[in-house]
Design a binder for these strands. Structure first.
Lengths: 345, 345
DNA sequence: ACCATGGCTTGGAACGATCCAGAGTTCCAC
DNA sequence: GTGGAACTCTGGATCGTTCCAAGCCATGGT
């Protein structure tokens, strides 16, 4: 296996199966077997072929293999277009692990971004040209359009995100239990002695937002705490986070805030900064996503950390099975986030 | 061109050139020409073939095309492995634009990460299996190993980052003028009335660090300001940024700080937080990279913003030319960053 | 009327791998 | 010693596209 990085001679054209076969004194098919089904060969033949492979630095031509086997060993990963300022920057933790886990199982990742307004943008071309073996869908919360369409095209795919609108969907998926995340965030604050804990979340029509919100409500009610006047709903932006914080701090004077995202938490920080309140001393804040920002801003924002690395690995595992057995129908996997406690609480 | 997304019938196998040819009543080659050299066909024939293509939703099979033409229309993009906490998170601005610009010219991007300790990791396999047409190298500051090796393998590539150690390198590259960035950052502070402006930078052996540092020195000296006792060199981490800030604030009492990275700037913020100093009022801070963090932390950190989008587009342009004419030798492109002014100064 | 020209179209070969069916060996049981 | 299974290995066909050389046909000049 120890292929010398820079072979002695630099040939213009890479060696082919036939070259190896000739050098080893066997047929093409035997070389092919040596690569793909080594146990079909007699030990000494295998060794001879391996020698030839190593000597020439042979690696199968992907295009040729792909043409014959109808498998490209490429996974299409569609990422949501990122907006300036919004902290979906945490997604590169996901991408990174996904790419590495995929590489370990022999798959490469073809990254693409689609027009956010058109959930189907980008899939079609890759599918028609049989460029990828499967897709990873990363924003199922935008509705089931993508998944139903992919299904109708008989495309293979897994999703990072539960099938919100179709509970009976058959494709493998992995998601993070967001309600639980909001719950542990809230309970952490309750343990710290807070009882007036406000929620700054997203609009009602956001599935993710409502899910997270329910965790806060559940935790509050479980501990006999009231939530009236403590919730606000707004856009996922710093500006509206600040506005919401301003309003709720003036009206209800909570001692702690749970935010549906780190972006909103940053909005809160802006409000605190203006009011010359000290984060973590005068008021406690918990964010969501454990983004770079939460990790680095002093004194650190306690944040709900989605297990993105684990999610990526689970998705790769599901993909592997899906591609091995086309009829594979996995149960969805729900992962639990953990709370990273920092100075803000 | 308006291909219906979900064709009337869902065929198990995608249509091939031969299918189109039969439907249009022409030969395979004519269909191929209709796709690749439309001007070779008579107008009416072209129309007929186009009809058939549209009707069947035909798209050339990538593997077959790639096998024949020896071009995969894939670009391998090697990203440096990201470390927790460090703000190279800004790179997804780059990745995003690069992917989109590449898509516009018909190229897809195959993302991979290499072992940071081994600059060559990952390239070899993709190259041998002729999986990609070219590479984008993103961390030339780690030394010329990658580029010399790629050159010796006759691989096509462009780099985001000047060829630091080999000024005579022939490959196209794009880079950002970091010294200039530090210079405008420093001058901005001078304009704001500061004269005791400290530098918090990286160790001497960091090429990028020295480059940025030189911009600060140049600006200071140009305005007749002294730099003695105002510079410190440390690791690129929050902890060491804080330590450096602590030391320099105690010793020299500067009124403003220029940091070699936003990560270091965040370290400074930690120091300020502890000292109960208000960012932007008691002391001015300028960062580098214009990361998410700089954009969102209140009151916003003034930061040198590298034109990553422009860099990505330039690289795609260079790649296009490189792949069209193999002998293409472009001059390097040096882009100027801009300063994004925020509350911290 | 003829040949050369150029525009348009065609069938066969090739890219480099795997699938498939069969051929040659070896080995063991009867 | 023979039949047959099990183990190895092989050559031809094939995946879907583009390259290549040649063919057809109308046009125009001689």
């Amino acid at each position: 296996m120890a292929v010398p990085r820079s072979g002695g001679h630099i040939s213009a054209a890479p060696p082919t199966l036939a070259d190896v076969a000739e050098l080893a004194g066997v047929s093409r098919q035997t070389v092919s077997n040596a690569v793909n089904n080594p146990d079909l060969l007699r030990a000494d033949t295998l060794a001879r072929v391996q020698d030839a492979i190593d000597k020439l630095g042979y690696q199968p031509n992907r295009a040729a293999r792909s043409l014959r086997t109808r498998a490209s060993h490429l996974i299409g990963l569609r990422m949501p277009a990122l907006q300036e300022g919004t902290a979906n920057a945490m997604m590169d933790r996901f991408v990174h692990t996904f790419v590495e886990a995929a590489a370990e199982t022999g798959y490469h990742v073809l990254l693409f971004y689609g027009d956010p307004a058109d959930p189907l943008d980008g899939y079609d071309e890759l599918l028609r040209s049989t460029a990828v073996d499967a897709f990873v869908v990363t924003d199922t919360h935008l509705g089931g359009q993508q998944t139903t369409w992919l299904q109708s095209r008989r495309a293979r795919f897994v999703s990072f995100g539960r099938p919100w609108t179709q509970p009976d969907a058959k494709h493998p998926w992995v998601d993070v239990d967001l309600a639980y995340g909001a719950e542990i965030a809230t309970e952490h604050l309750i343990e710290r002695g807070h009882s007036k804990i406000a929620w700054i979340g997203w609009h009602k029509d956001s599935l993710l937002g409502e899910e997270r919100r329910s965790g806060w409500i559940h935790a509050m009610h479980t501990h006999g705490l009231s939530t009236t006047g403590l919730a606000s709903r707004t856009e996922d932006s710093i500006g509206s986070g600040k506005a919401a914080a301003d309003a709720i701090l003036d009206e209800t004077e909570p001692t702690a805030l749970v935010c549906a995202s780190d972006t909103l938490a940053m909005g809160v920080l802006h409000s605190l900064f203006e009011r010359r309140l000290r984060l973590g001393e005068d008021i406690a804040v918990v964010g969501f996503d454990d983004s770079q920002v939460a990790q680095t801003v002093p004194p650190g924002i306690t944040s709900v950390r989605p297990p993105l690395e684990e999610a990526a690995r689970e998705l790769v595992k599901a993909l592997e099975e899906l591609l091995a057995t086309p009829s594979y129908a996995a149960p969805g996997v729900m992962l639990k986030p953990v709370l990273t406690v920092r100075g803000s609480s």
